[in-house]
Nucleic acid binder design. Sequence first.
DNA 1: CGGGGACTTGACGGCCTTCAATGAGAGTGG
DNA 2: CCACTCTCATTGAAGGCCGTCAAGTCCCCG
Lengths: 232, 232
Amino acid sequence: MGFCDNCVVRNRAICAALDSTEIQALNAIGRRRKLEPGQSLLWEGEDSVLVANVIEGVLKLSTGTSDGREQIVGVVYPSDFIGRPFGKQTAHSVTALTDATVCVFSRTDFDSFAREHPALEHKLLQRTLSELDRTRQWMLVLGRKSASERIAAFLLDMSERLVEPGCVTLPDEPHQTFDLPFSRQQVADVLGLTIETVSRQFTKLKTEGVIDLPSRRSVTILNREELEDRAG
Amino acid sequence: MGFCDNCVVRNRAICAALDSTEIQALNAIGRRRKLEPGQSLLWEGEDSVLVANVIEGVLKLSTGTSDGREQIVGVVYPSDFIGRPFGKQTAHSVTALTDATVCVFSRTDFDSFAREHPALEHKLLQRTLSELDRTRQWMLVLGRKSASERIAAFLLDMSERLVEPGCVTLPDEPHQTFDLPFSRQQVADVLGLTIETVSRQFTKLKTEGVIDLPSRRSVTILNREELEDRAG
DNA sequence: CGGGGACTTGACGGCCTTCAATGAGAGTGG
DNA sequence: CCACTCTCATTGAAGGCCGTCAAGTCCCCG
């Protein structure tokens, strides 16, 4: 008996495609690993040595230019899949934003296992297709939207994704108040802006009564409709 | 006997995963369709009714805001796969940039067929994973790069992708001269810029001897190293 | 209470957009 | 063959949004 039996994402991660015999076999080639905020699991450009499922926490996928500019290209939550199966190189770094627990596999072990279990590959395909849609949708934000539109779109996106099981929300106003797993700089890195612009847009929305900022990391949406209008 | 037997992308598209018996079955549920430049195959937000393989030509994937701003989120070439299998909605429009031929399937027919042919799903998974990597890489361009860096990165990307089989290149300088399948406006829509900025950056590169512009749609790279430096 | 990092706020400048006019090519018909 | 037209591309001028640089403020944590 292994970790999988009492895994909180057992029925939501790609593992849900497997029966109890199969999951034991998968369990045998995986191991759990804990990460602290700021700790990386994969580095851009390195060989693709491992893949993983997110069990707990939030992680960022990022790339950067040679002169230090950074862009966050994805954010993963519990039950999401990490890494590049069937490929030699990792195209982006993966770094924990919060305390996180992941279920790690050697990439080659996982590749072999997946090839023998089409149902698992099917789940992974569905996830990858959804992620591709989501990523392309975000290109519209980066390519065509103003700073205020970006912030509004970002807050709406966060409010939707942080209510999924496994992510903390305050008890009283479940969909309206949430804690960002990002610093201001990281928000800037998601949106392709500077930290100062992000800060100014946050305070502007607060001043105009669209949101409230109870603490550094937390946000309350006071007027969702208005925020949706501003998202463009 | 059907179209597949003499299909020019038979060995490069996801169909390469199938043996001759299987390909006959796939052939039975597909049909060919020709598209003219500007003609769309799928529309953003519509039900996902069909998927396709590109046989010939170049097509764009695009989305836009309600007030008419457009962003091209992907470009597909011969042997690439189009559409959203296993999903209800199409997240972006698909429009031909050149004369194009595609091999079309009903989405539900394709879904059933794919589920019965793991090797096909595996090919599709590999393609989708590569496309996701490529798309995320492009987010760095949209989020963090200046106009001149974007143009340089774009020209280098084009020079690499347009030499693939099925795309026309001039005989004398295979990798250095190529015809863009884009108008200036479409280049702007790929890069998240305006047509004027694109035009100015093109003429700047020409003036400084990095590229030449023999005609409206064609580009010659005179100094690739310099272009790589400018891509950031 | 005091240090240090994260965040905010302000002033200024530059890059890109916007608006507008000119120029170049391709196709058409006289 | 050449005016004519229409579209696409180029070029110019001006303005605005956001980045940069620099203080100042707020918290968190020791």
